[in-house]
Write a protein that binds this DNA or RNA. Structure first.
Lengths: 331, 331
DNA sequence: CTGAAAGCGCTAACAA
DNA sequence: TTGTTAGCGCTTTCAG
């Protein structure tokens, strides 16, 4: 069974291969009647344009590389979905690369993608800025959840949402809250810490910044244990996963949430709804983040030398069951 | 800056382009000294083989399509990672396609991949068997967690593990347990139901099969509510996600787990450790599942007409905090 | 609006 | 062991 190509279709229609090609890529250049005939014959024969051939002829692969530091982090799947959907809207396929938490390996993985994809979306990359900048020399790149000089990026600004949740805490009587920072090297962690600090200053709340914990469930457990010694009545965790660890630790120590202690997460991953109590957190606009990233990447592909854009999307506060009024001190 | 191709490298070395090509693809056919020279020049010039060109010349894209029904299901990320790692070991890239829970769309998505990938791994596909069989006509396919006549597949057998957990339940005094089946159309759900039934018969335990619930957190909540009316003291949930829903519902109704009721999940996704109490469940051997799938796919690509193999890997029981002895009836 | 022809970068006989 | 020569399937000038 010989493969069906533009030539088979052309022959079947009595036109030249170029006309068939045009019928698919520049339909406006082909007379209506002819185009119809071609499309019909193509469908009939089961013709599928060969992507590789097209790629080699045009220099475009119609693929975008999506590099994630850790696909098992619940933040990623919704993001992957969003990116993929947005990419699909432009007939781009997504080549997924999971760095398996090896930040040092990211650069290497990225360089492997060269020539295979038209551009890269780097979701919360952990590699060194310099390596990322180098990677971007070769290939259009868009960052998500990180900002690096000279590169386009889309980030989520949780400042207002965290402040709103903080204000509610204050109304609930909390006067002293803890901040559980994420890894010091994480851009998002720095960002969130900064906005929480700013809020605390404004709200005249005492903020206890605990040492950075790992952005993981176990990191959260550690943090949860440490929390108890602080005299705080509420905590902002770096993200939902860490917050879950805090919840688990508090539960194991018989501390009631939100009765005795309030916990705030961030990102609103699926998990946030699944734990008991469900987490008060900040919903990341996954869909829009993905769309924006793809949009920026298209710009960057179209105009590699253009000035890098930055898109900032606000997170949305959601109050659930992990926060509440400070318990009346019953001695 | 002209792109660097085998020709640039050839010229730089004073050899022909084919020799350069060989130096990369069939190094054994090139004299050592020459190969060294070529590799050095290539590195110097920053040569990267163009995948599309190679694909069009060889008919192989070195890509595998990984189709998942729902990337946000926590079962998938570890599987994606495993497949990707195994694929990478053979220098295959992974094109990820998330069907976004639209089982009807799967077939369409699959057919889009035709020509773009050398083969397909379909993880827990929900499309109709006939559509999947048709897809496989065009393209080597391997199924995961589903068995369809004529297609190679790798599945996880949780029978022994579930039985072991069940036996422990019996030792803990449980005499009547519930089975929360997943969606009736799910192969895995049928499979699990079957093995639990078999165990119950053997163990002489009364099994209450509740109507199929959605394999989701909310499905689990519903199930949890229904459970209370059954007179059972323990339940096998279809998977961990559903089990989490059950936990949440029981918690909200003041039912202590495992004090008043025991809950068993399945798969051991990250989530299983994060909930309180942590879930007794069956660990799926993700790494091996991924490796096996890639291995079968390679066979299938090499020998499209070969008899389809089947690999079955056993799940491993893990006892955590969601199961325990039946509470003494205190009237 | 359509066809002829020249590549895109690489591989794979076939010769040498 | 190496070079020559055709392609792979598609796009894209350039003529017509």
């Amino acid at each position: 069974m010989p493969r069906v190509t533009i030539y088979s279709v052309a022959q079947a229609c009595g036109v030249s291969s170029s006309t068939v090609s045009r019928a698919f890529t520049r339909p406006d250049l082909v007379k209506d009647s002819v185009r119809q005939r071609i499309l019909a014959a193509a469908a009939e024969l089961g013709y599928r344009p060969n992507k590789s051939a097209r790629a080699i002829a045009t220099g475009r692969t119609a693929m975008v590389g999506l590099v994630v530091p850790d696909i098992t982090n619940p933040f990623m799947p919704p993001l992957v979905r969003a990116v993929q959907r947005a990419a699909g809207d432009h007939d781009w396929s997504v080549l997924l690369v999971d760095a398996e938490e090896q930040s040092a390996a990211e650069a290497e993985l990225i360089s492997r993608l060269h020539g295979q994809v038209d551009g890269l979306i780097l979701a919360s990359p952990r590699a060194r800025s310099i390596d990322l900048q180098n990677a971007a020399e070769d290939l259009p790149c868009v960052l998500m959840n990180r900002v690096i000089r000279g590169l386009p990026s889309v980030v989520c600004d949780n400042g207002a949402a965290l402040a709103a949740i903080g204000d509610q805490l204050v109304r609930d009587g909390h006067r002293r809250v803890a901040l559980l920072g994420g890894p010091a090297s994480s851009w998002a962690a720095q960002q969130r810490a900064r906005t929480v600090r700013a809020w605390a200053a404004r709200a005249e709340v005492v903020l206890d910044e605990l040492k950075p914990y790992d952005a993981s469930f176990d990191g959260g457990r550690e943090a949860g244990a440490a929390l108890l010694a602080t005299g705080t009545t509420a905590a902002f965790a770096f993200d939902d996963v860490m917050a879950c660890g805090v919840l688990a630790e508090l539960a194991s120590r018989g501390v009631a949430v939100p009765g005795d202690y309030s916990v705030v997460g961030c990102d609103d991953v699926l998990l946030a709804r699944m734990v008991t109590p469900s987490l008060t957190t900040v919903t990341a606009p996954f869909g829009e983040l993905g769309r924006a990233a793809v949009e920026l990447l298209r710009e960057s592909v179209a105009e590699p030398e253009g000035r890098p854009s930055r898109v900032t999307l606000p997170g949305v506060p959601v109050t659930r069951a992990s926060t509440g009024p400070v318990a009346a001190r019953t001695p």
